[in-house]
Design a protein around this nucleic acid. Structure first.
Length: 415
RNA sequence: GUGAGCGUAGCUCAGCUGGUAGAGCCCCGGACUGUGGCUCCGGUUGUCGCGGGUUCGAUCCCCGUCGCUCACCCCA
């Protein structure tokens, strides 16, 4: 048996209905905030992610689906969408176009990781990008979009966690200071932190191992290492969030795994999830466009994990589909029923026809199993009178109606 | 990449210290010859993940392997 590739999955009805509703709700919200959709390729040159995300990051170092095409070019299935959007912006010179300054995307992403709850090799993200706007209001508004989306989805217990990781000016000196402070006590750190000290010293701050905490507590604080401009920016973002009545927690040690972030970084986590509890992650990425050969333009964005959001969302009530199940019996009825079904569909009614002749009893049983809202019975009597028996499967009541009246009756209820 | 748990019918699972498999659900039909849901009756479905070993005999014990799940790492 051929099975789906590890870490990928088929989305079946009715589960897929939840995806459709989430996407529709998100599109509506994004557009109310002035965002327009962008669809970028799933496949990009590997170089894009190496330069955009950073070759030292876990994503690039060990989690990419990378392969060579027939001409030997290295291609990668996108592990996230910001780099692709940035590439498109630079390529089409969208940075000067106010029309394209606010973009959103919805689509699959790929990372070669060991799957677990809330983490898949093909997963789906929706996200926004605000380009060319360096003011702190953009950060706060971007976070507001995420919060509104989670509210609309009915997510309980979601917390915004906020931090600033500085900029190209103040971060390098801080990292040097941090490294110097931790080096003498390296023996007290966990194995992971010892490794991080070499590869990405900032990440040690995020360590949850208890024995590391005293050492990290004694280390110089990231917020104290911020330059005046970064500190002002951070303060302003918090003030605007307060103004918007968006609650958040400042986590001075939160650091994110993509190299392109500067200043604001944030996450939204939910207790409704397992170990992989981040629903949304993002931040400011001034400088990314430039790193990709574009202008020195500001950027802010986030991505939301759709599988995780759906996991945390309350379930939908069951649907009655198809709306009308057409049951028939008797010689010569089938031909009439096929035409009747088309007639009803043309009038906007969802109809399912049984192609096997079966008893009304058996047909009604199937209608019930299919969770149909109505059954339309067509036998010899109906063929004769051209009045069809419409049965309400919830109440059990039924009436004889002409085709147009059947359609009208069924359409009285919103689908 | 590392660790742990689990692979028995389409699904959820049972199978006692080894004697070659069962239930519920689902599906189909009937009781009710033009009326579903409840009830009752009947019917269909298995390389016990795969390969090897131990044994008179393995779904059960051992080894390997593949898959799934959860966790670590990291992230959405």
């Amino acid at each position: 048996m051929i099975t789906a590739v590890k870490g990928t999955q088929d989305l079946l009805f009715p589960e897929v209905r939840r995806w459709q509703q989430l996407e529709a709700a998100a599109r509506g919200l994004f557009e109310r905030y002035g965002f327009g959709e962008i669809r970028t390729p799933l496949l990009e040159p590997t170089e894009l992610f190496v330069r955009g995300i950073g070759d030292e990051t876990d994503i690039v170092a060990k989690e990419m689906y990378t392969f060579q095409d027939r001409k030997g070019r290295s291609l990668t299935l996108r592990p996230e969408n910001t780099a692709g959007v940035a590439r498109a912006v630079v390529e089409h010179r969208l940075h000067d176009s106010p029309q394209h300054a606010r973009l959103y995307y919805i689509g699959p992403q790929f990372r070669y990781e060991r799957p677990q709850k809330g983490r898949y090799r093909q997963f789906h993200q929706m996200g926004i990008e605000i380009l060319g706007e360096g003011a702190p209001g953009a950060d706060a508004e971007g976070i507001a979009v995420a919060v509104d989306l989670l509210d609309a989805a009915g997510i309980p217990a979601a917390t915004v966690q906020l931090n600033s990781v500085g900029c190209a000016e103040c971060r390098p000196p801080y990292v040097a200071l941090l490294k110097a402070s931790l080096a003498p006590r390296v023996s007290e750190l966990c194995g992971d932190c010892r490794r991080r000290l070499e590869t990405n010293p900032l990440r040690t701050l995020d360590c949850k191992v208890p024995s590391c905490q005293p050492v990290l507590d004694a280390a110089p604080r990231l917020d104290e290492g911020l330059c005046a401009a970064c500190a002002d920016h951070h303060r302003a973002v918090r003030e605007i969030l307060d103004l918007l009545r968006i609650s958040y927690r400042v986590r001075p040690r939160m650091v994110r795994g993509l190299d392109y972030y500067v200043r604001t970084v944030f996450e939204v986590t939910s207790e409704a999830l397992g170990a992989q509890d981040a629903l949304v992650g993002g931040g400011r990425y001034d400088g990314l466009l430039r790193a990709l050969g574009g202008p020195d333009a500001a950027g802010f964005g986030w991505a939301l994990g759709m599988e995780r959001l759906l996991m945390a969302m309350p379930p939908l009530p069951g649907e009655r589909l198809p709306r009308v199940y057409l049951a028939w019996s008797g010689a010569g009825t089938y031909a009439r029923v096929l035409l009747l079904a088309r007639e009803l569909r043309a009038m906007g009614v969802a109809v399912l026809v049984e192609h096997q002749e079966r008893s009304f009893k058996s047909a009604l049983k199937r209608a019930d199993r299919l969770n149909a809202r109505w059954a339309l019975l067509v036998g010899e009597e109906e063929l004769e009178s051209e009045l069809y028996t419409l049965k309400d499967l919830a109440s059990g009541g039924q009436q004889a109606l002409a085709a147009a009246d059947v359609a009208a009756r069924v359409r009285e209820e919103a689908p």
